[in-house]
Design a protein around this nucleic acid. Structure first.
Lengths: 176, 176
DNA sequence: TTACTTTTGCAACCTTTTAACGATGGAAAT
DNA sequence: ATTTCCATCGTTAAAAGGTTGCAAAAGTAA
């Protein structure tokens, strides 16, 4: 479940082995986030980094209060508003997205599919996992439809809930 | 009665206006809702009808607590749960939809476009109006995409926010 | 009637999000 | 270096949205 890893002591060279691939990947993702902030002249503060790390190390999406709880278990006790402020900044920098249907947040993985246009988010109702599927043509068509309805769209993204392959297969013995 | 009544009324949309055409139309819509309930052997109780009427007479979408406030102004003071239960029933009967991105509800107008497949909802950020645009092919394509991602979709509907024609035209003085 | 199901009423509580206001800390202009 | 400015953060508080649990009514069927 929740792997309690400490972000504080993590030097690039050895952390990969010490913490496994996931740890290395997280460093990587955090690094990318940092760059995203710099590109926009926004500050990737310690607080924002902590919040981002929690989100990014979560399989699926995570709610604001769970971020709060996890950070507090790690010694950083925050007020809700602080988390929300970080979340706002992270969304603005484009490194996380909000899953409207679940009031939760997840790290953007656009890089994983090479920026082939805007993605649709498929959120698994069983395991909470979120997959981003590039679907620019869908967005284009929606834009078309909107135009014909004389509507100026401002779509940020689309959500589709359902069941992922893994959960479908192991259907029957449900855990979380 | 602490919480239930201390909320400040905030009008997000307007209820029935001229009462002339709108009133007749409302009766019509309520009648249709009644039929929808009967078709499913559900009870269109007085409470549900009241809640539905508030929703249906709202231009755009309306939140649960605003329904609460409006009904209470009309003498029907309810607990939140009562409104939510009615909302659940109304959604189940298919006569209203929930706008996920705004935590609010609006009356279904499928009949207006003759049931040509599932609609996308276009919600105007300025005036709060919601237009349903039939878009079965979009849903089909999403289903295709999902399949290719090995994901079993369960889309109920899609939301697109933006600006409607009327609001775009009378733009100039920015709102927010 | 009795028995059963559905709907309501009521109180309390939980979760999510924002407001208000002051303090801090870094950039940059003086 | 010091003042000035702005973004960020801490703290308190509360608004907005939603749920649980239980009991009383109202409807349905026998």
């Amino acid at each position: 479940m929740a792997k309690t890893m400490t972000r504080t002591a993590k030097s690039k060279g050895e952390s990969a082995k010490a913490e496994g691939e996931a740890g290395a990947m997280l460093d990587d993702i955090v690094q990318r986030a940092k760059v995203a902030f710099e590109e926009r002249s926004l500050r990737f503060t310690q607080l924002r980094e902590q919040v981002f790390s929690e989100i990014a190390s979560t399989r699926g999406s995570i709610g604001a209060y769970e971020i709060l709880d996890r950070l507090s278990e790690k010694g950083t006790r925050l007020a809700p508003i602080s988390v929300y402020r970080s979340i706002d900044a992270l969304i603005e920098a484009g490194v996380i997205h909000r899953l409207e249907s679940k009031n939760s947040y997840f790290a953007c993985r656009r890089h994983e599919h090479g920026r082939k246009g805007r993605p649709i988010f498929m959120a698994c109702e069983q395991c909470g996992g979120v997959v981003e599927v590039p679907a620019q043509s869908i967005f284009d068509q929606v834009a078309e439809l909107a135009k014909s309805a004389d509507f100026t769209p401002k779509v940020k993204f689309m959500e589709v809930s359902g069941t992922c392959a893994a959960c479908r297969d192991k259907a029957g013995s449900k855990g979380d």
